[in-house]
Amino acid sequence: METSKVIHAIYTDDDVLMAAVKKVKAERHHIEEIYTPFPVHGLDKAMGLAPTRIAITSFIYGCIGLIVSIWMMNYMMIQDWPQNIGGKPSFSYIENMPAFVPIMFELTVFFAAHLMVITFYLRSRMWPFKKAENPDPRTTDDHFLMELAVHGNEKELENLLKETGAVEINIVEKEAH
């Protein structure tokens, strides 16, 4: 198994962490990952993460849901088995459409919400029986962990991180995946 060396710097405060991220980025180091117990406002931008596109996927799923609902009701109510229900037009989707609006709306929401959540779970690698990958259990309580790759510059990184207020600095061998 191939391994690589990484440095884990642990912080105990979100403001200290934010200042540290800015400093580390200013020194032109690449931050591999940051584990935090709660969403730290502005951290993704400071780290240089690209904005998430998950909202766009939701919009697309919603459009699919709308199309599915129209196709389904057109097939069932207009083409396959048209019935006279209270004299409503059973021969034209568009003329009977007001009665179909609630279901068109519900299925749009259903698709947009569920498929987006499933996409989120899969992209962030979460499912039942998945093992958690946070390297330190304290990062779900009140600790913040910054992970940097080491390329023979251990001492330099250690000094830099200590300066930024890291309370613990560990160098670990990480299995590549």
Binding site: E33, I34, Y35, T36, P37, F38, P39, V40, L43, D44, M47, L49, P51, T52, I54, A55, S58, A112, A113, M116, V117, F120, Y121, R123, S124, R125, M126, W127, P128, F129, K130, K131, A132, E133, N134, T139, T140
Partner: peptide, 21 residues
């Protein structure tokens, strides 16, 4: 917990998903 890890990217998606939901 579905193996929740709390990476910065997870939180970014988490907040966006919450807002869209």
């Amino acid at each position: 917990s579905f193996g929740w890890t709390g990476r910065a990217k997870d939180w970014q998606r988490f907040e966006e998903v919450s807002l869209v939901l």
